[in-house]
Design a protein around this nucleic acid. Structure first.
Lengths: 362, 362
DNA sequence: GTCAGTCGTGTAAACGATTCCACGACTCAC
DNA sequence: GTGAGTCGTGGAATCGTTTACACGACTGAC
């Protein structure tokens, strides 16, 4: 593969001049510039990013470590991150932790070894020594969706409290009193927060949340199935179940179906994180929708601000309830979305709140 | 960040010795080794992968350019690719082409600039000059799922012909005679092949496939919706529609629903590519399932073989029909999968054909 | 005609690793 | 005791860039 030396020889100039042309440095004559460009063309030369990175100490690359690629929420997030990064001239390397702290560490280590310019993380746990070290030692870093307390890292996330309250109001309005939750891992902020928000909302209606109605899941489908089975085995099973993410909701739906029961007739179901498929499940599933695309874009903006020396901004955006039929309402049609079902709007992010609003600084 | 020089100074040896310890080269004394290891520990030293790559001319990184990350099929593929690559000591950088040739080229170029060791591609089109150049100039490359004719690059894919034949038999058995297809882009092999297989299978039953019953889609949901609308507007709409991928099936389902019609009562629907959500849609969707995980793993094995100087092997694995209720059968339960619904099995790939079988060399 | 300033260019030193080669200190066979 | 071989080590070149610095050729003011 042709190097800058070959180009220099072909153009009859020094490598310094070639480099200057490539980085369009002003002080190079028009003549030299055209000769270099011709040589570049002739040889099909492409600069070696590895060498360039070594010299300049920057890779123009962002690392993104997410908890689970198979979760459509994170896939969507990853896509918007890549899009925004590309717009700002950065590449993204994705590491999939699969909700496993050891895998998460593996990816963080690999990304750090590659000297990425900054790291976007949605932590799977409370923070390994490695991650804490990275944060404290000044690696540009931003948490997205989930975060770790006690480190000085901006957080871009959505606040589901209001939406969870709306959900409980919705369930209460439909006559459900015995409510249960399939929780995420307590080591994650989203795992804890969603339970907490649910508990507070229930309290506002004078409803209890006994321990038997808090099932411990791990954000994966299999755990949703397991917890739902336990709920159904109870002497007095819950009337409505709230799954803290979409995969556990899917598992829960499996469990209900295997028993030959029906949603919402036998048991109501709702989920955190709305995804296009929820419109088409049997029945369509009531969910809390995050402004996923905007979350990804805001996270990249914050990280790039940090990398380029501007003060990064923490961002919190609101989530909203999308009521469908899985909790029992004789729904007329798809709510809120009048023109087209969400599936197609998700792709263009037009259904999301406007970027300019709902910011809060921290 | 500490460099190898700092470690050498700390340990009181030369950088050469440090390097030897790091790459566990045999000729280094036990004493020197422990001193170096202690210094590495003390300084929290991690080798700079950028510098290492420049020197050794290898990055131990694979590029994966896929057509659309939002498509669960490709997400699953990407995950299995990363898993297998990690097992073989490689990292993976994913580029999402979003079915856009220009974006695909962008990613190929970026990956090449980074001097990845090899490229896994599921081409969005018939092959841009850039991609053809890369293939011909000897970049280790393997096509997965889709391929480009006329270049000497191994292909790892699945053959859906038998499954498509089974599908047509299934539809015919249910009494459907007017069949239609929502095709993928003719520029892709999968786009063409699926139409071709469908046409041949119809011919075997003496059924016609008029042009009005071939809708041109682009593998995205919106196109599925559009084509389905056209089908429904026909004087004599088809009785059954086969979507060439899962996203177009989703769009088609939208279109049917918006008209207030029902699947399968008013129109039957089947899709290429099975995904966990199809079990829970209303109705559950009949689909052709590829051995996605094994495809990803085989592709990585082939690419790494090529990179490390062994002769790479093209692989073709069979796809299979998974009949559900969307074509009209009064299905008793989930077919073939008796213990658990596919959603949980997908994650562990246990439902896939064994890796050892069904190979074909090319 | 001299001198200061500009402009375009080239030389060479980094960046952080790997690896070839040379060399000194041994061991061991004769 | 000498010579050959082994072993551990360090010096230095190298990978492909960027960039500080020096320098020669101009220009233009005095």
């Amino acid at each position: 593969m042709a190097s800058i030396k070959d180009v220099a020889a072909e153009a009859g100039v020094s490598v310094a001049t070639v480099s200057r042309v490539l980085n369009d440095h002003p002080s190079v004559s028009a003549d030299a510039r055209t000769r270099v460009l011709a040589a570049v063309e002739a040889l099909g030369y492409r600069p070696n990013a590895v060498a360039r990175s070594l010299r300049t100490d920057q890779t123009r690359t962002l690392g993104l470590v997410i908890s689970d690629v198979l979760n459509p929420y994170f896939t969507h997030l990853a896509r918007s991150v890549e899009e925004q990064a590309r717009a700002l001239g950065y590449s993204v390397i994705i590491g999939n932790a699969d909700e496993r702290p050891d895998l998460q560490d593996h990816h963080v280590r690999t990304l750090l070894d590659r000297r990425i310019d900054g790291l976007l993380v949605s932590p799977t746990d409370g923070g390994s020594p490695l991650m804490l070290d990275a944060a404290r030692s000044g690696t540009p870093m931003v948490f997205v969706d989930r975060w770790i307390a006690g480190v000085d890292v901006p957080v871009v996330r959505s606040d589901g409290r209001t939406a969870v309250h709306d959900l409980v109001a919705h369930l209460h309005g439909l006559g459900h009193r015995r409510l249960a939750i399939i929780a995420g891992p307590a080591a994650t902020t989203t795992g804890r927060e969603r339970v907490e928000a649910f508990r507070q909302a229930l309290a506002a209606y004078g409803l209890p949340l006994p321990d038997s109605h808090i099932g411990q899941g791990d954000f994966q489908a299999e755990s949703g199935r397991r917890v739902m089975e336990r709920f159904l085995d109870l002497a007095e099973p819950p009337e409505a179940v709230f799954a803290a993410d979409n995969l556990m909701a899917l598992g829960a739906l499996d469990a209900v179906r295997v028993r030959g029961l029906r949603v919402p007739d036998d048991i109501a179901l709702a989920a955190f994180d709305d995804i296009p498929w929820f419109v088409h499940t049997d029945p369509p599933i009531t969910a809390i929708a995050q402004p996923t695309g905007e979350l990804g874009r805001a996270a990249v903006r914050a990280l790039v601000d940090r990398i380029e020396g501007r003060p990064p901004e923490s961002v919190t955006l609101p989530a909203r309830l999308v009521a469908r039929r899985s909790c029992g309402e004789p729904a007329s049609a798809e709510p809120r979305v009048l023109q087209k079902p969400p599936v197609l709007q998700e792709a263009t992010a037009s259904a999301e709140p406007s970027p300019a609003t709902n910011r809060s600084q921290s």
